[in-house]
Design a protein around this nucleic acid. Structure first.
Length: 152
DNA sequence: GCCAACGTTGGC
DNA sequence: GCCAACGTTGGC
């Protein structure tokens, strides 16, 4: 089982929103590297949910992949902010996966603490200027974070 | 709100 | 195919 980290701006969609809905299509990914990671995800993979663009960015909870990658319908919707005129239904450019809420991490694990963890030294998440919205997480990184939190 | 870093676009 | 311009991301 692989692990991943998904970034979200809680002002747009937060872990609490995911908890309230139970399950949600993770739509709007418009970056090829992130899309390729989406396509590697398998049902049952567990992911960290990370809040960005907040006073203390960091990992706030965990979720589970419940569908494999399939075309993101928002790419075909001219009303959607994620509309992509260059993508055709015959050959969709962008995918999404559906994720289900599992738990909050208490306490949250801030980016600052991740930077201090040796397991994360090579993770793109802690690199300056990193803009990847989906990041692979190794087993040791996954365990190191879980060792610091209670799942609530 | 600022701005560095990055990915994408498009003129040539 | 290069690369300047542009738009976006995300920490601070």
């Amino acid at each position: 089982m692989a692990h991943w980290l998904l970034k979200t701006e809680p002002e747009a969609f937060s872990l609490d929103d995911l908890k309230a809905r139970g399950q949600e299509p993770w739509d709007g990914i418009r970056n090829y590297q992130a899309r390729n990671f989406l396509r590697q995800m398998r049902v049952g993979d567990e992911v960290f949910i990370y809040h960005s663009r907040v006073p203390v960015p960091g990992i706030v909870g965990i979720a589970r992949i419940v569908t494999e990658a399939h075309p993101d319908p928002t790419q075909f919707d001219p009303q959607s902010p994620y509309y992509d005129a260059g993508s055709s239904p015959a050959d969709p450019r962008w995918d999404l996966v559906d994720i289900a809420y599992l738990a909050h991490c208490v306490p949250a694990v801030s980016l600052e603490s991740l930077r201090e963890m040796p397991e994360f030294a090579d993770n793109p998440l802690v690199r300056k200027g990193n803009r990847l919205s989906i990041v692979p997480i190794s087993e040791s990184q996954w365990q190191a974070v879980l060792a610091r939190v209670t799942l609530v």
